[in-house]
Simulated scan of single mutants.
Amino acid sequence: MKKTTGKAILAAAMMVSMMSVQTGVTEAAVATPKPAATAKPVVTAKPTATAKPTATPAPVMRDNLSKYGLKKDVELPVTVTAGGLSYTLEKIMIYDFNSKEATTLRNTYKYGSESGLVANPKYFIWTKITIKNNSKKTVDNLNSQKWNLSFKGLSSLDPASSFSRIGKNNDTSALNRFVLKPGQALSTYQAFMYKEGFKYFLIELSNDGQYASKYIVEDL
Rank of each mutant, 00 (worst) to 15 (best):
T54A: 13
T54S: 11
A55V: 13
A55T: 09
T56L: 06
T56R: 04
P57F: 12
A58G: 02
P59A: 08
P59R: 08
P59C: 05
P59G: 04
P59S: 04
P59F: 08
V60Y: 07
V60T: 11
V60S: 07
M61R: 12
M61C: 10
D63P: 03
D63V: 06
N64V: 10
N64I: 05
N64F: 01
N64Q: 06
S66E: 14
S66M: 09
K67C: 01
K67Q: 12
Y68R: 06
Y68K: 01
Y68W: 12
G69K: 01
G69Y: 04
G69I: 03
L70T: 01
L70R: 00
K71I: 13
K71E: 12
K72C: 07
D73G: 06
D73Q: 11
D73Y: 08
D73I: 06
V74W: 05
E75Y: 11
E75F: 10
E75K: 12
E75V: 11
E75R: 04
L76W: 05
L76T: 02
L76Q: 07
P77F: 03
P77N: 08
P77C: 08
P77S: 09
P77I: 04
V78N: 03
T79G: 00
T79K: 04
V80A: 00
V80S: 01
T81Q: 05
T81P: 02
A82I: 08
A82W: 06
A82Y: 05
A82C: 03
G83E: 05
G84Q: 01
L85N: 03
L85A: 00
S86W: 02
S86M: 01
S86P: 00
S86G: 01
L89C: 04
L89M: 07
E90N: 13
E90K: 14
K91V: 08
K91G: 09
K91R: 14
I92Y: 06
I92E: 11
I92P: 07
I92L: 12
M93F: 15
M93V: 10
I94T: 10
I94M: 09
Y95K: 10
Y95A: 04
Y95E: 08
F97S: 06
F97Q: 12
N98E: 15
S99Y: 10
S99R: 12
S99I: 14
S99A: 15
S99W: 13
S99G: 15
E101W: 07
E101G: 08
A102K: 08
A102R: 13
A102L: 10
T104W: 10
T104R: 13
T104A: 15
L105S: 07
L105M: 03
L105W: 00
L105H: 08
L105P: 07
L105E: 04
R106A: 04
R106D: 08
R106P: 05
R106Q: 15
N107R: 09
N107E: 15
N107L: 14
T108G: 03
T108W: 01
T108D: 03
T108E: 05
